[in-house]
Amino acid sequence: MLSFTLRRLASVVGVVLFLALAVFALGKVGNADPVRTYIGANASAEQVEQARAELGLDDPLLTQFWNFLTGAVQGDLGISLSTKHAIADDLSTRLPATLELAGWALGFAVILAVVLAAVAALGGKVAAVLRFVFFSAASAPAFLVAMLGVLVFYQAWGLLPASGRTSYGVYDDSTGFYVIDGLLHASPLYAADAIGHLILPAVAAGLAPGVALARVLSDGLGASMSSPFARTARAMGESETTILRRHGLRNASSPALSMLAVQAGLMVSSLVVVEQVFAWNGLGTYLANAIAAGDFNAIAAVSLILGVVYVVLNALVEVALAAVDPRVRLG
């Protein structure tokens, strides 16, 4: 198991290197001039010269890539062409904001999936109703769910906040994760408020992935509940719930785990929209602004970060797959 994990991690490094190269190349082949984005269209030739030097664009390409790579490893992601700040500083509050939201959205998706799939697996009329819910919810785009959520839970009922991350200030020694901040400072009120702010955006971003996950899990459960080993358990006198718990979920989880990785990747694009709707100052908002401004440095940096998160997540899923299924682990 250990060597399996190490080998997966080694392959992560390779993939990330390739990703860095791709992201770097993307900024170089674009036909927008980064210097003009940086200092504006009306700058003098002298100013352009100065800016080129400042951005390191006079160096040979290989040196530029080396600087980009070594900088990234040390946490220096370059300068944003639009905000003129170090990108790393820009992201220091935004990355945790997005990770917190994505974590809750994924958590919601997984819980939703397990509940939906388990109810569907045990059959009955509820299963038929759920199948209907599956289809309708999976076809609703995240922004629609987000707007509906705002209309119902904020405007009509006033139950949940609809923008920002907290109703209070931010702690000086904030981890960037507000729920954790609240717990660290022994302030349940602060944590609860942060959770309140998370509910609507997390549901909006997690609903469709949750349903997609539920369908995979449900198919897998259907297969494992009608499999010969479930029949064996039945013949040994086990109840359906015991079979589901003891044999069904674990055997159905392999395809669901793979699906989880796919959905986590897809969630990035829905987060861009959801963050806009809920004025969530995270990577998504930052990325949207950077794209609008043609800020290739920022786009490259955010893409690299999202890529790394995605690759690491996939590696974790593979390790989890091996943990779940001894046939993967033991050959």
Binding site: S227, T232, H247, R250, D325
Partner: peptide, 8 residues
């Protein structure tokens, strides 16, 4: 071959 739970 298939009557025993492969994960157990």
């Amino acid at each position: 071959m298939r009557s025993l739970d492969p994960t157990m």
